[in-house]
Design a binder for these strands. Structure first.
Lengths: 181, 181
DNA sequence: ACCTTAATGCAATTTCTTAGCGTTAGGCGC
DNA sequence: GCGCCTAACGCTAAGAAATTGCATTAAGGT
């Protein structure tokens, strides 16, 4: 579910954004395990059956909301040099994702194998890295392999966030970046 | 929930293993999203309330089962040399985890932040790697840093499994290992 | 402006979850 | 071994959530 809307204007869109907003509000206020569909329905002024029909179940709705929140609004900061660009991006990425809401979003996105939630969300970081790479090339720098940067830098960060087996200090993140180059 | 049992013999243990077995059976037969607590209860001859009391909810039960399945039964194979040891271990790890049930287990384990499911399961791979390291040292080889091996080899594999953004070929896994050394 | 139909609302039904209470059976001291 | 204590279970009823059919609303195209 969580289908692409066939009708993307008017009431349908209004309900989608209303539901999304309500979910985000609730995520701030309470624990995710306490959130229910009827609860979201009431707070957003929509009947539960509408939510079930459009999103299938709670986990898919949460995944949908998480993906929407992860969707980038701006390109990563331009610091003037490739390595510092990547470092800045990674530090921000690590901070966002390791926060309480960030981990919740990751869990929501990975929690449902249905839909392309995980795929979409990993595309976002891929695109950002691609932007950094092109920017580097435009400057005349050597550039870097985006796939390898994911293996060397992004993957370890995500791993440690998910399994909670290591503190994600800025120093550690920086060491990942410098190890990559 | 999914607490360590206070009483670990007799009926309680029998029920636990019966429920676990039933869950594993169901996972083979049907999609995870179709499995319900009452369903497990009936097939295992246990009342639903018992399951809810012991495990809290379905996701925690699934996580518990997944951790139990991931718990290693034997040390990794001894191939005679450190690099081939690690390669063999990683190839098996990648194959197990990228399978349908493997991905489901990962999702289950990561799906619940309650309990230490994720922590336990990442400890298993840590211990295996530590075994390989000690084995290497006993042979007089240089050994390797377990944490770094996770960053360089395990993390990329897990990342690509979870986000489904890349085919996990044996060649790719081998390249991760050789890149690490 | 009208027509078609996707999408929603409502309500009844089914299914799942929770909680109280009595019963069973480990584990422990004797 | 024998009996006590209580963790853990089964049963049942109440409560909450999920599903489904049918009527209604409102996009989007003609």
């Amino acid at each position: 579910m969580a289908r692409e809307m066939v009708r993307q204007g008017g009431r349908s869109a209004r309900i989608q954004s209303e539901v999304h907003r309500t979910v985000q509000d609730l995520l701030k206020t309470m624990d995710r395990s306490a959130i229910t569909v009827p609860m979201i329905a009431e707070k957003s002024g929509v009947t539960p059956s509408t939510i079930y029909r459009r999103w299938g179940d709670l986990s898919e709705l949460l995944a949908d909301v998480a993906v929407a929140r992860m969707r980038p609004i701006a390109d990563p900061e331009d610091t003037g040099a490739m390595e510092s660009d990547l470092e800045a991006f990674i530090l921000q990425y690590a901070e966002e994702m390791s926060s309480k809401v960030g981990r919740a979003m990751l869990a929501d996105v990975l929690g449902t194998m249905e839909g392309a939630a995980a795929g979409k969300c990993c595309q976002f970081t891929y695109q950002h890295l691609e932007t950094l790479r092109e920017r580097a090339l435009a400057r005349g720098e050597a550039g870097f392999d985006v796939g390898e940067s994911i293996d060397f830098v992004v993957a370890p960060i995500v791993y440690h966030i998910l399994f909670g087996d290591r503190e994600l200090t800025p120093d550690y993140c920086r060491s990942l970046v410098s190890r990559f180059f």
